[in-house]
Design a protein around this nucleic acid. Structure first.
Lengths: 149, 149
DNA sequence: AATAAGAATGAATTTTTATGCATTTTGGTG
DNA sequence: CACCAAAATGCATAAAAATTCATTCTTATT
């Protein structure tokens, strides 16, 4: 898990959590956390992640992840909806019917970060590697799997 | 129906129909159609309409209407999904359950462009004024009602 | 370990977008 | 119709975002 991918995961989190109204805002936050980057890199990151800004209700701009801004949960091609952790388990929620295909995809792309998956209709249980129990690492893995790069 | 509203309706149509990668592209198209505006005005229009650009698959930018870019139909607070005309009738599709409230809203905001509404669960029939049967005008009316301005 | 190819990044710059301010247009009222 | 207030718009410019080009990391391979 390299720095770029960590940074991308973090960018998403920041943008979900707080109002970011320009790339410089984001830049400051990332720098505070030790990510040494420039606006140029952020521009490229955001482009790849399809993150963009849009007018907020108060007439200022804010960055959003368009896929996630809707009342009805939307999902990417994999039906992925959300991820939670508990102990050494990760629980993935999907659109009904999508759990198995996604679990298969994961099985076909093994990683030392998890040791196995089992899927229901809309939920996947993932057992993480107990030695190297790293949630960030799993997030990155999943992110790569779903969105590439 | 003033020029601004006509322009906004047209902007949406253009952005749905073709790849617009910057405001100047849009500006040219609008000018070709006789809308005399400047980039400054477009910036403001797009802000109000919550239209923004995002990376397309081919790594170029394109303007989109975020609400409309999803596999699962998303809807605004009114549940509005779509509009079709037939003769002097307009047919509005909504999310199930939203038809009545929207019809009520229309009834509470009467206009000479339509003479009555009747709502089912997810569909509204609207009878247009037969003298002044103007679909554009109705589109503008609905647009104003749903999105303001 | 040396080397080469590709990816990632930054500095500087260009391009694009947003906005402050002045002006014009639009609508309503007396 | 004259007048005012509010909305819309353009011009000029500031602010923000995207990109070019050069450089530095990574990674795979010998």
């Amino acid at each position: 898990m390299n720095n770029k991918q960590l940074r991308k995961v973090r960018i998403k989190e920041i943008i979900r959590d707080k109002v970011i109204s320009c790339q410089d805002d984001l830049l400051k936050d990332l720098r505070d956390e030790g990510f040494e980057v420039t606006q140029a890199t952020l521009s490229r990151d955001l482009k790849k992640m399809k993150i963009t800004k849009i007018a907020d209700t108060d007439n200022t701009y804010r960055y959003i992840i368009p896929e996630e801004t809707h009342a009805q949960q939307s999902h990417d091609g994999h039906g992925y909806l959300g991820l939670t952790f508990s102990g050494h388990m990760a629980v993935i929620q999907t659109v009904a019917g999508y759990a198995s295909p996604l679990a298969v995809l994961m099985d076909n792309n093994p990683s030392e970060v998890f040791v196995g998956t089992i899927a229901g209709r809309d939920t996947i249980f993932v057992v993480l590697n107990e030695n190297d129990n790293d949630r960030e690492k799993f997030k990155v893995y999943l992110d790569e799997l779903l969105y590439g790069n």
